[in-house]
Nucleic acid binder design. Structure first.
Lengths: 240, 240
DNA sequence: CGGAAGATTGAGAGTTCTCAATGCCTGTGG
DNA sequence: CCACAGGCATTGAGAACTCTCAATCTTCCG
């Protein structure tokens, strides 16, 4: 199977075999991380760009009162910090959620790769999708109550994971605690727990032992008001 | 005074006089919009990139239940839809909030301009700042209650407007209704109203007749837990 | 088997929402 | 120059949603 980032960048279209060959150099330096470690911290000035190869991590920000907000889940194929090519320092942290493997890519290699227009375009595309996902999260947190909000996040992850081959059928592995889920949703873990129970009782989805099973895809999408258009997936992947 | 987008892109550094000269071509086709009109709609495939020259607009998304969530305020100097260079269609709408002036820039001109590395870098920089702002909004909506949330938004707008010369001192024009403010904050206008009252009574800030006056900058930043680092402004501008 | 982390549940408090009424300000027409 | 209409802002009261704190149950793993 192709590396996830190839599957992902393919969605941007127009990559030829040469591009794919060049991109494989991203994998030259892959390092393991244990679960719940910081991969990069706010304020860091890393000299590598990091790409998720295996496992899950998240962007997050700690607040003064000790609460945490997760602003993105990073799955295989996602770039952690393309922005440090431009910014001086990280304005948020990235932490592993599971044991994972991360490619360390020298800035110079990124510069070299982006001389290929198709690759530069694919990376820009990836960054714009990230932006669209952030907007969707804002809508989610601003205008949906707990049940619908959780449903939307699950629909999104389902679609994204299918796109990189990690969600066959209507279930997928979600290696998060309810606490981590709540940090992403802007809720408390207690309320997430109660709401998951309701989703289960309503026959929409279950989440047990880090496994999501969507029992009723159309119904879940309906209450979530989920439209995958913002993910800009290749035709067909978001459907179903 | 320079056009706002020059002031803004300058923050990315490294623009020389030639670049600034080239960028001035962005202003060749400026069109007026009345307040509360759509400039671009979800699903559109515009053939121009739009740049705010004067007035305010916002990105927003309508939900099935008729509620609205604003995901960004666009002020002079902001690019509305650089993404349509890459994506087929808009995944959200952009609407004017005030009467405003918008530059229509042919895609071809963007392509031409981005052949200059410094300009390409500046545009990428702008897009990354947008992303950082989106993350800050997520943190805001997820982990701050109403008073602190409003305070944070006001601190952010204050810093951004100072950067383009639109907020001398500790006050600035905010041409929004409380309804529009609430659509951005994920609150109801009634609650925004009550909370503004509290902010006023606490001597932190006032909002009357579309004018924000920050009465106590350090205190407002304190309750908002505001750190302007994510805006990546030139040294000094975010400070006070 | 014992611990520790995570999930679940209960009860009560706090925040935010909904619905509805009232007040204020501005622009228009008489 | 004044009356009036319409759009916002403001306020009240009660309902709904979410949070906090704390106890208990499960699961996982050494």
């Amino acid at each position: 199977m192709d590396a996830a980032f190839l599957l992902k960048l393919q969605s941007a279209g127009r990559l030829n075999d040469g591009d794919r060959e060049r991109l494989s150099k991203l994998c030259d330096d892959i390092r393991p991380f244990h679960a719940r470690r910081d991969i990069i911290r706010e304020g860091d000035r890393p000299d590598h760009v990091h790409v998720m190869i295996e496992g899950w991590s998240c962007r997050y920000k700690m607040l003064a009162d000790g609460t945490r907000q997760i602003t993105a889940f990073l799955v295989p194929g996602d770039f952690c910090d393309a922005q440090i090519t431009i910014f001086d320092e990280m304005d948020h942290s990235i932490g592993s959620l599971t044991d994972c493997k991360v490619a360390f890519v020298p800035r110079a290699l990124i510069a070299e790769l982006t001389e290929q227009p198709a690759i530069a375009r694919a990376l820009w595309w990836a960054s714009l999708v990230d932006e669209a996902v952030l907007r969707a999260w804002i809508v989610n947190m601003g205008r949906r109550e707990a049940q619908d909000r959780i449903a939307h996040l699950i629909c999104e992850l389902h679609a994204r994971l299918r796109n990189v081959g990690l969600a066959p059928g209507n279930s997928f592995e979600l290696p998060l605690t309810q606490e981590e889920l709540s940090d992403a949703l802007g809720l408390t873990s207690v309320h997430v727990n109660r709401t998951l129970k309701r989703l289960r009782e309503d026959g929409l989805m279950t989440f047990r032992r880090q496994q999501i099973v969507i029992t009723d895809v159309p119904a879940l999408r309906k209450i979530a008001d989920f439209d995958p258009n913002y993910l800009h997936l290749p035709a067909g992947v978001g459907e179903d």
